[in-house]
Amino acid sequence: MKISRIAAIASVLFGLVQAAAAQETPKAITIATEGAYAPWNFTTADGKLDGFEVDLANDLCGRMKIECKIVAQDWDGMIPALTVGKFDVIMASMFITEKRLKIIDFTQPYAVDPSGFAVAKDSELGKVGISNERFKLENEASAQAAIDKLKPLLKGKIIGVQAATANLEFVKKYFSDVAEIREYKTTEQHDLDLAAGRIDALFAQQTALAATLGKPEFSDYTLAGPGFVGGLFGLGSGAGIRKEDIKLKDMLDGAIDAAIADGTIKTLSLKWLKSDVTPVK
């Protein structure tokens, strides 16, 4: 009986210590990125992490005046590794979705980038070409109308998409009745299959697809159709953190606010993504 009481008291004290720690200003943090989603984040030939989110992470850490270490983490283990304390923050073009918010918390979005298709130029969808239209999935009627126009153009095709992503959820929900959906652990893998002709289309963020199509081996491919945001894609890309790290969230939100206000996010996104993905306040 006494042992159980001691255990209960110890548990309460541990919880109080954890809660207090969550309110303290961290002196150093570890940020994880995938290192395989160019130009958002990637690994250079000499093994260094680089890209839009690596530059942004370093900028945010400078604003917060804390020491940061940036590490690579496989996409499919990203959230579990965060929750067990392997690192403190995720910056890996991770969409802020209701499903993920049940497990972890996020900062405000630091980028909003539509997702869309890349296909061969001589395909039915490729001949339609890229559209500047952006459809919010919350506006169900207009978004569904746009999707219905795409379906016959993708009928019988194989669509490549990264596993465990909102992009996968989207193509499964709206195109699995007309096309085969093929999942890949990384975007680099589905890029290789597109170049080899083993799949007919890719679905991913348009800036990432544009970077892929800029390579010589993809000269016969193009972005095609409109872009999609909201709904399954959530609020945009944000930094993932543990729910209890309240002080860290406040610090990151403040740093992101400052980076939006002074144009840093615009500058970095134009540098790396060739497009301004700054969230609209």
Rank of each mutant, 00 (worst) to 15 (best):
L232G: 02
F135E: 00
D276A: 06
G238A: 13
F218M: 07
F203P: 07
E244P: 00
D46F: 00
F218R: 11
E133D: 15
V112M: 04
Q189H: 11
A195R: 08
A164Y: 10
N167V: 02
D253Y: 07
G156M: 13
G197Q: 06
D105N: 10
K266P: 00
V229F: 04
A224E: 01
P39R: 08
F218E: 11
G197V: 01
D257M: 00
A81Y: 14
G47R: 00
Q18Y: 09
A143D: 03
E133V: 13
D46Q: 01
A211I: 07
I31K: 02
D74I: 15
T107H: 01
G77S: 12
R182Y: 04
Y221W: 13
S219F: 14
D76R: 13
V171G: 04
N139D: 08
K215T: 12
A196P: 11
A22I: 06
K121M: 15
A111K: 00
Q162E: 07
K185M: 13
T212E: 09
A22S: 15
R242V: 07
S131L: 08
L60S: 12
D59Y: 14
T25S: 06
M1V: 10
A118K: 10
A57L: 01
F170P: 07
A118E: 10
A259R: 08
K271D: 08
M78E: 07
F14S: 12
A143T: 00
I6W: 10
S93E: 11
D46I: 08
D113K: 02
F170E: 10
W272M: 01
V128I: 14
A211W: 13
G47L: 01
L209C: 15
K247W: 05
S93N: 14
T267P: 00
F170G: 08
E124I: 04
G227I: 03
Q205P: 03
L154Q: 01
D46V: 01
F42W: 12
L60A: 05
K173I: 11
G231T: 08
I3E: 15
